[in-house]
């Protein structure tokens, strides 16, 4: 019974509550009550779909990572724009990237980051969570792509999740 009344995903609940306040044009009594109901109900309904939460996240490392990603998104767009406008044909490649991360949430974050940043889109994860298939728009050789992702994104994520 107590299980039903609790918030199994406190961060998700908080995010839902705040987002609902934003959506309903400022905080009022009604929106607070409805936000609370949503913040309770949605995690309860979707409980079965969430992976086990990671044991420990170093939350203070998140802002630095986000800043780096936002900056890289801007750079990536400029690079992709230049490539689209240049007359020479692109050198696309499928690259298999060996994952060091183990937690599903961390892999999801890494895959999303790869999709948004320089010339790469993540296409698939192998069933045993060991390999990530990446499509690169313009790659000289596979090793450069792998090294860049490893040092720029996977290292900080590894530190964050361990």
């Amino acid at each position: 019974m107590l299980d039903r009344l609790s918030f199994p995903q406190p961060w998700l609940s908080l995010t839902l509550f705040i987002t609902w306040q934003f959506l309903s044009d400022g905080i009022s009594g009604g929106s607070a009550v409805l936000g609370l109901i949503l913040a309770w109900a949605i995690p309860q309904i979707t409980q079965g779909f969430w992976p086990d939460p990671p044991a420990f996240i170093k939350a203070w490392r998140v802002p630095a990572y986000l800043l780096r990603v936002v900056w890289d998104i801007v750079i990536a767009s400029v690079e992709v724009a230049r490539l689209i406008l240049s007359p020479r044909p692109a050198r696309p490649a499928f690259v298999c990237y060996p994952l060091e991360l183990e937690h599903p949430l961390a892999i999801t974050i890494l895959a999303s980051t790869i999709s948004l940043t320089p010339g790469t889109v993540s296409a698939d994860v192998s069933d045993d969570n060991k390999l990530l298939l990446i499509h690169a728009l313009d790659a000289e050789d596979d090793q450069t792509v792998i090294d860049t992702i490893k040092t720029r994104y996977e290292k900080p994520l590894l530190e964050m999740f361990q």
Partner: peptide, 17 residues
């Protein structure tokens, strides 16, 4: 761009930004 996978890059990055 020539094929689907390369076309995927334009919308995900340039258009979003």
């Amino acid at each position: 761009l020539p094929d689907f996978f390369t076309r995927l890059h334009g919308p995900t990055k340039a258009t979003t930004v």
